[in-house]
Design a protein around this nucleic acid. Structure first.
Lengths: 362, 362
DNA sequence: AAGAGCCAGTGAAACATTTCAGTGGAATTA
DNA sequence: TAATTCCACTGAAATGTTTCACTGGCTCTT
């Protein structure tokens, strides 16, 4: 174990230089009122300045049992396919950073050997007061949480351990916004193109991806359509993997068009899927939105930039990041985990050219 | 100062449970050979497992004087205009994370109060062995470096303090690639649309932005053109701020067209500027590339996606991130700062539709 | 003038760990 | 058998800081 190249000056050095005890220096530094003899204070002040003294966070943490630091575990930077050009991470990250900043919390990134490896011990090495994680598998999360570490899952996953906080977008609202929009345009035969349930490549590594989101959206779609008596299992399509989404979309659309009562609108689990459906429709000569309305979710650039821009539900990703930090703070200050599980409201749908009045029902 | 909600088990607890001294446990944990009595080892092993013991990084750091942690200071997530949709940060970040991961280094993000505030003491609180910073102003950097903290500036700035490492793209090569491409197409009258020298809004906050890059590119352009005897100061345009880039581009192009000998190609300091020049050319009815070749720098999506995709020099941003971590490691292990200043090679120019053979010189 | 009270500051323990320098006992050697 | 060597382990100091409990000296009150 190598030692650091430079030596910081310690409270002892300051005490010696100022001719007082370390206790006095400590009191001075921490602003206790009763150490106020002006001349002593002055000597300490100059000693600190000359020695460039800064109290060691390490020992402070040791003494206080708290470090004012949260561990953040975001797998995205290591995951090429998921992240490049996808602003999700960027926005989430920004929310986290901003909230942590205003709460005066430092953030520690654990290296992959801890994040991706099998041992979760690294998280318990005393450097952090709490943990924010994004894509840690349930088993390891459980271990960490059971050891007493406050932790918030981001977004909430299916196998959320007891005692663990969680922050997600309210997917019921997400779906609700999209469906309300389509309902108000007169659509009744509404299909859903669902996202990949879970990616195989990552099931291997034990990393739990937020593709659970796709499942939540599917469930919300199903229950809300059922509540209106409009649900038809034939109108559910799946894209099992990212690889051949275009093909999947094509097949699915063809299948739907062959139905006696084809859908007039399709709600896609995310914008990437919506784009795939859009180009499938184009290839098949199905006019959008006249013959088929398309709604996406995420409000990503790809939805905005096509020839026919796609109506999309805007997910408040940055808010999710902020709320996650807040939840973690509450958890750290002792609130019960149930109170630290929040569904961030989703309130905005950006209406664009891919949706219009349903012509069938006129 | 609040204490943490949960108490970790310490080496003492393990020692007590296993009926040995803490020394023995320590030796066991750190794999010293001479503590190998199988029965003792077994007892310690079970005690550790039962108590979920993990050695405290805090005290380890305290004892060893090194924490295997680097501080990273990236302002981008807090800077709306610069970052959204700009993959620069994302790619840089990924390089940093990957290299840190493979070097088994943790990364600590300091909060804005340290990063943006006036005090640089926060960096010296003993939690990190070195510092990677991106947009810390020269004065504060100097203070940190003088205090003996190994630090690497990313990218290299004009006012790089002595003893500080630095990693940047080799802007001479960047410009060289672009110019060679244009020369090979026969262009001789080549203009340069330079980036903002420094952003006022951030000069206020004391944050030094990497807009120095624009300056470096301008200098490289000037010297390389001069070396060929082709430099003409009239062919230099500036975009002083992001806000009215389009207008600036328009004015600049108009001005250039009015010259007796207008440029046949323009090298823009980045892709955003190249896009601005492209749309200015479109508005003015100047055909690209026939009447004007345009080269950008960065190889960003915006360069790729226009109606006429733009030829652009690909800057190895991820490499820069990786190299920065490596440089910092070398610096931390005692290498002189001069050896820890690297210019990352720039080798790739992506040729697209915005450049073609120069017709004037045929 | 004696006790009370305060002022300005100090000693030492505690936090969790590592590591130098030992120690007691057994096995080996002379 | 006595000395040596080795084994398996332990004591204690050191890292930098905070904080409880205390002290010596001074001033004030009665």
């Amino acid at each position: 174990m190598t030692t650091r190249a430079f030596r910081k000056s310690s409270i002892k050095d300051v005490a010696q230089k100022a001719g007082v005890s370390t206790t006095t220096v400590s009191y001075f530094v921490n602003g206790r009122e009763d150490v106020c003899a002006p001349r002593t204070a002055e000597r300490i002040r100059t000693a600190i300045a000359e020695l460039q003294y800064t109290p060691s966070s390490l020992t402070r943490g040791l003494r206080h049992g708290a470090t004012h630091t949260i561990g953040v575990c975001l797998y995205s930077p290591l995951d090429p396919e998921l992240m490049y050009g996808n602003l999700f991470f960027e926005r989430l990250w920004r929310g986290v950073v901003r909230e942590a900043d205003s709460a005066d919390l430092s953030m520690l990134h654990y290296p992959l050997s801890v994040r991706g490896g099998t041992k979760s011990d690294g998280f318990l090495d005393g450097r952090v007061d709490g943990l924010l994680f994004h894509g840690l598998d349930g088993a390891r999360a459980k271990k960490v949480v059971q050891a007493g570490m406050p932790a918030v899952m981001l977004p909430r996953s299916k196998d959320l351990p007891d005692g663990c906080g969680a922050v997600s977008a309210d997917e019921e609202q997400t779906i609700g916004l999209a469906l309300d929009h389509l309902f108000s345009l007169g659509h009744r035969r509404i299909a859903h193109f669902a996202g990949p349930a879970r990616q195989v490549s990552h099931a291997e590594t034990g990393i739990n991806k937020p593709d659970d989101i796709a499942l939540l959206r599917l469930e919300a779609f199903t229950s809300q359509m059922e509540a209106k008596g409009l649900f038809d299992p034939l109108l559910i399509g799946f894209a099992d993997a990212w690889q051949n989404v275009d093909e999947k979309a094509m097949n699915t659309i063809v299948k739907w068009r062959a139905l006696p009562d084809p859908p007039t609108a399709v709600l896609c689990a995310n914008d990437a899927l919506a784009c795939a459906v859009m180009s499938a429709a184009n290839s098949l000569g199905i006019r959008v939105p006249e013959a088929l309305s398309i709604v996406g979710i995420d409000d990503s650039p790809e939805a905005r930039e096509g020839a026919i821009p796609i109506t999309s539900v805007a997910v408040p990703v940055e808010d999710i990041g902020r709320q996650a930090v807040r939840s973690l703070q509450r958890l750290m200050s002792g609130e019960p985990a149930e109170a630290c599980r929040v569904a961030v409201p989703v309130t905005e749908i950006v209406v664009r050219g891919s949706t219009s009045q349903c012509v069938m029902n006129r």
